[in-house]
């Protein structure tokens, strides 16, 4: 069994940790850190009689998670304050949303940038308000900037000058270049308000977004964590309304694949139709598990395939070649001048 498999098994059934020897624990911790699942693992194992040395390392992962949570919630608070003139709730996405809503998916989870969702017509105003409140653009390159504004589903990332934290302001949950067109208005209209001018997506939308994020945005790097989000959301609050919601956003097949993989890896309770993996699913599973006990990624060819695929998903082919061409030209120019 590979270290990634051990990680998945222990997350699924913490009692299995009792049978692990010390050498295996070292590998498990390394692979959990590499997959940004160390805090989640530590929470799952809390209260279990693990070896003393291991318990100390897991306690540290919980400290990190607590700090990540504190920082993320404060950042959300500051963003809501800056955006108060919009008179519209700030819809939190992903990790910050799980923490703010007190969901099990947020327990022990690392949280990076703050992702928020706002109605598209408000984006310009939001950008101005954030800049006035101390956020700055990171991408100064005009092509990158234009690329973001035209083709991505977000403003160019902004970073706060003092706190050094990044905010991604989205107006939908997939790039405009993607084939599927989620119903952004419905996402925002049905969001669940929280205190302090914040809101989170409705439960079913949260799962749809997590699935879209898992497959459509990126090379499946960090996929085990993103899949765990889906598992934890479903185990806590079930599947009600998910099928209809996925259909409404044009993401039924994406959500079904996420459910099949979540069931296969973590034993998630899913509808009968999602309890068997297809041949393609098995490739995804291999990609998700491609990490050894030293935290290194394995299966180079498979990774490359997923890398190319990730670009195909984000952009139609002519646009992709244009994008890569400009990137290549810029790379040449940079190396010539550097």
């Amino acid at each position: 069994m590979t270290a990634a498999q051990t990680l998945v098994e222990v997350l699924r059934d913490p009692a299995r940790a009792m049978a692990i020897d010390l050498t295996r624990w070292t590998e498990l911790l390394t692979v959990a850190r590499a997959e940004t699942l160390a805090g989640t693992l530590a929470h799952r194992l809390e209260g279990l009689a693990v070896p003393d040395a291991v318990a100390k390392a897991l306690a540290e992962a919980r400290i990190d998670a607590a700090e990540a949570r504190r920082t993320a919630l404060w950042e959300a608070n500051r963003i809501a304050k800056a955006l108060r003139p919009l008179a519209h709730p700030v819809v939190l996405l992903k990790g910050t949303a799980f923490a703010a809503a007190g969901l099990a998916a947020g327990q022990g989870r690392g949280i990076g940038d703050c992702d928020i969702l706002l109605p598209k017509p408000m984006l310009d105003h939001a950008e101005k308000l954030l800049v006035d409140a101390g956020w700055q653009w990171i991408k100064s390159d005009p092509y990158d900037d234009l690329y973001y504004r035209r083709w991505m589903h977000e403003l160019p990332p902004l970073i706060h000058a003092e706190r050094g934290r990044m905010v991604d302001v989205h107006h939908t949950i997939l790039p405009l270049t993607a084939r599927q067109k989620p119903d952004a208005q419905a996402l925002i209209a049905d969001a669940v308000p929280l205190d302090g001018g914040l809101a989170v997506l409705d439960h079913a939308d949260m799962i749809v977004h997590a699935a879209a994020h898992l497959f459509a945005d990126g090379e499946l790097a960090g996929g085990l964590r993103n899949l765990w989000d889906i598992h934890a959301l479903i185990e806590e609050r079930g599947l009600e309304g998910l099928e209809a919601r996925a259909a409404r956003h044009g993401l039924s097949s994406t959500v079904d694949r996420a459910l099949r993989l979540s069931h296969a890896l973590y034993g998630t309770s899913v509808p009968r139709r999602c309890r068997h993996l297809t041949t393609t699913d098995r490739l995804y599973r291999r990609r998700l598990m491609a990490r050894d006990g030293w935290g290194r990624e394995r299966h180079t060819a498979l990774r490359t395939a997923f890398y190319i695929r990730s670009h195909l998903i984000r952009m139609p082919l002519p646009l992709l070649s244009r994008h890569l061409w400009i990137k290549w030209r810029k790379g040449k120019a940079a190396s010539a001048s550097g």
């Binding site: 010390l22 390392a57 030293w294 935290g295």
Partner: peptide, 12 residues
């Protein structure tokens, strides 16, 4: 030379 290690380092 403990059985468990808090941290792993790779020289590759």
């Amino acid at each position: 030379r403990p059985g468990f290690a808090d941290y792993s380092v790779r020289l590759e």
